[in-house]
Nucleic acid binder design. Structure first.
Lengths: 149, 149
DNA sequence: AATACAATGACATCCACTTTCATTGAAGAC
DNA sequence: GTCTTCAATGAAAGTGGATGTCATTGTATT
């Protein structure tokens, strides 16, 4: 188990204890799958991964677990406009720069700090107090480009 | 009627003629309301505006009209992750920079052309072929800040 | 005016997500 | 270790935004 995973699991169990909630088998399995995947995902993807190994997990439980992870500060909830609620491991800072492949649908993150500084400056000059910033690029990732070409 | 509105209506009727579709009373009313509002909106907002004056419009018709506007190139469809499909007048270029007020929910656009080139350069350096770019800032707009302070 | 067929709107359906509720199971009490 | 409490689970029902269905209405061409 990686150090990062260890830390996330500790954080989650601390949260459960604090709120007098229970550490169930399902929650552990879902958290493992979520951390192991290590990229932004959504309920259905996790559900399929989990069902392939453990057939006794309901989809409502996966939904509830993901919301719980968000409440625990382990995950961040976001959306890309395709109707699915997505989750990513928190702790990447406040940055939310996504590359969404319009071919395979995979979401990857990238770092764009120099540009964000200027974005924020423009917004502030309009009297807007910025709380969150999201940059979303849609296109074709290098893997899909190679395969189709 | 503004020049812009005139132009949009002409474009729409050209589209209808080309596709052998019909210019109905409802479509005209919906287009008028959409252009007059002059900011990004969604079905329900338009529906309420329209119903307050013309009780003979069904919500399915508003949905269909908005999709038609998008097909005609008059409107652009987008989402902000709140489950609503939003539409804005097209023709602002390919840029989609939104300021979303977390207090009043109003969406305003801002122009950020100097930054686009750098965004694209970063993505391309990762082997990503960019098709669309969306920047979304959440925060409190100057009007809400003044009212609450 | 007559004809053809797109558009409308009430209603049903879809889909992602949430809630309900009877049952199961985790964790503290003893 | 057993008991007790009450949160968690999962199957099924419910929500809400968006879309499909279909009989009827309305537009535009003949």
């Amino acid at each position: 188990m990686t150090q990062k995973k260890q830390k996330v699991k500790e954080q989650f169990h601390l949260f459960l204890t604090k709120k007098r909630l229970k550490a169930t088998l399902q929650r552990n399995l879902i958290l493992d799958a979520f951390v192991d995947l290590d990229r932004p995902t959504h309920m259905d993807e996790l559900y399929l991964i989990l069902r392939s190994k453990h057939s006794h997990i309901g989809h409502a439980t996966v939904y509830r677990a993901l919301r719980l992870f968000a409440a625990a500060g382990i995950a961040r909830e976001f959306s890309l406009g395709d109707g699915l609620t997505r989750y990513e491991l928190a702790g990447h800072g406040k940055r939310h720069d996504y590359l969404v492949c319009s071919d395979c649908g995979t979401v990857t993150e990238f770092d764009n700090s120099s540009i964000e500084e200027r974005q924020l400056a423009v917004a502030r000059s309009m009297g807007f107090t910025v709380e969150a910033l999201k940059i979303e690029l849609r296109g074709v990732c290098s893997r899909c480009l190679t395969q189709s070409g």
